[in-house]
Nucleic acid binder design. Structure first.
Lengths: 103, 103
DNA sequence: GTAACGTATCAGTCCATGGTGATGTCAGTC
DNA sequence: GACTGACATCACCATGGACTGATACGTTAC
């Protein structure tokens, strides 16, 4: 079972804007205004996406005065990377050994 | 730039049925009838998804009589896994070192 | 030849979801 | 206190895309 819970994470990263947000957060914690400035998207839009990411457990929030810092949680990404690596290795093995199921 | 061309692959894997197809193909080459039997989806549906995967370069086809074998290409998955690992490592570093951009 | 099978293609439908605008809330500033 | 700024929430709209049915094509079996 390669895809189970992780399917959620795949779907989250499939959206270009969310992918951009995750990429930005992978380098440093940012607050909403930073993300709005970096992406050029509306604040409402960013906020909605952050909510989705938060509810999925991909990001953590840290209120800081009237700002809200968002930080990327490493664990889910690590898990995703591992599963993806396993998938790639399985594909490599099946490909090189030319494994096929007879009809 | 973590997400560039790979964004396509993310999006492809985001769909549950396509993810299931890719998972099945990661173990062995299969023809359409196998995938139909395994997933329970309609033949038309499977065929449409296979077309998408084929056009994206994720799978190769090998006609075999009236059957068509589908095989998963390892390279794009390998690339995806690497990028995903890099993302996870960056996130880990930023998280542990508590890097944040000032407002 | 015809029939049955495996597969591909196309057009249409329907739904999930990304984007937006209006509005509310809380914190800081004056 | 009032006002501004940062952010969240909600309702609505529009569009992409997943799924389907009808159909066509090539291959094997008879």
């Amino acid at each position: 079972m390669v895809m189970s819970v992780e399917n959620d994470v795949w779907r989250l990263l499939a959206d270009p804007l969310r992918a951009r947000i995750v990429e930005l957060l992978s380098r440093e914690a940012l607050c909403t205004c930073h993300l709005v400035a970096e992406t050029g998207a509306r604040q409402t839009n960013i906020s909605n996406h952050l909510r989705v990411l938060r509810e999925a457990g991909l990001v953590e929030t840290e209120p800081c005065g009237r700002f809200t810092y968002y930080r990327l949680r490493p664990e889910p990404l690590r898990e995703l990377a591992d599963r993806c690596a396993a998938l790639a290795e399985a594909a490599r093995a099946a490909y090189d050994d030319d494994i096929r199921r007879p009809c």
